[in-house]
């Protein structure tokens, strides 16, 4: 009973939060709180198997699937508060209130007696009792549900299936093809350079720098390039900045880089170049 009075308010608050919270991931998390609380309530009602299954299936599998989809929309994505249909909000609130009143009135009309028979059902153990029922009296519906789920899974796979037109290229064939390409067209056969190599930043949208200081365009994902989010400051602007700073301060020759050495630090100046720390702790390239 204590568990109920602790968990019930928590569940109601979390459930309200699911509806009211702006961000989709937060509301999914609050839904998880509701589900886990429900599972604990099952445990206090002497249904341990239902407790475990509720967490494994609903919290562990189904809600995780929700999260997967939600996560891919990005951290900053929040619901828009602009009404697309005029008067929708007012109608929704009225409809919700009517529905709530209706439910309360209807539920208040019925009176349920005390539940009996729990002890008898759990006499041989909760799991054993459940298994007995599932595999004898309800075996047909159990199997039918299983068949339904498998059909659904197969259907989803069928819808997402793509017929392969040519045989898949194996690792060996791919290596041979790359070597051939290198031989004929001189295309680099190793992996693409990672973003940020030799640059000031190692963020994914900062192209790597080649030894001569020019950016390697291959190092940034094509998706980012298409979106236009690649940082595109002039390649050597930052280096000149450094040289000027070093010239201004003078006498600082910490590390191995001389003023003419442009190979190590020539990155993209992304923040404000003027507020860089100057003096002894000037970083010589990235760590």
């Amino acid at each position: 009973m204590i568990a109920f009075w602790v968990l019930a308010p928590l569940m109601v608050i979390a459930a309200l939060g699911v509806v009211l919270v702006r961000r989709a991931v937060h509301s999914a998390l609050l839904l998880a709180v509701v589900m886990i609380s429900l599972a604990v309530l099952y445990l206090t009602l002497e249904a341990p198997f239902l407790f475990a299954v509720q967490i494994i299936v609903y919290t562990g599998a189904i809600l995780m699937l929700f999260l997967f989809v939600l996560m891919l929309v990005g951290v900053d994505a929040a619901d828009s508060v602009v009404e697309t249909i005029r008067g929708q909000r007012l109608l929704a609130i009225t409809g919700g209130l009517v529905m709530g009143v209706l439910l309360v009135v209807v539920v208040a009309q019925i009176s349920l007696g005390t539940m009996v028979g729990m002890g008898a059902a759990n006499a041989g153990g909760n799991i054993e009792g459940l298994a007995d029922l599932l595999f004898s009296r309800y075996v047909l519906s159990f199997e039918a549900t299983a068949a339904l789920l498998i059909t659904a899974a197969l259907g989803a796979m069928l819808l997402a299936h793509r017929e392969r037109l040519e045989p898949k290229e194996g690792q060996r064939a791919m290596a041979a093809r790359r070597m051939q390409e290198y031989g004929t067209s001189g295309r680099h056969l190793g992996p693409l350079p990672s973003p940020g190599v030799y640059a000031r930043h190692n963020a994914v949208d900062t192209p790597a720098l080649l030894p001569d200081g020019t950016p390697a365009t291959d190092s940034v994902s094509r998706v980012l390039a298409a979106r236009g989010t690649v940082r595109s400051a002039p390649a050597l602007g930052d280096v000149e900045d450094v040289q000027r700073t070093l010239g201004d301060v003078g006498g600082i020759s910490g590390g191995s880089g001389s003023a003419t050495d442009t190979s190590a630090g020539g990155g993209y100046n992304t923040e404000n170049p003027d507020t860089r720390p100057q003096g002894d702790d000037w970083p010589e390239g990235d760590e």
Partner: peptide, 21 residues
């Protein structure tokens, strides 16, 4: 508990949330 091993798996699946989030 009568479902101890299932309990371990259930709690482990909550742990995955931490990593995903």
């Amino acid at each position: 508990m009568p479902v101890a091993v299932l309990f371990v798996m259930a709690i482990a699946s909550i742990g995955i949330y931490g990593i995903v989030l």
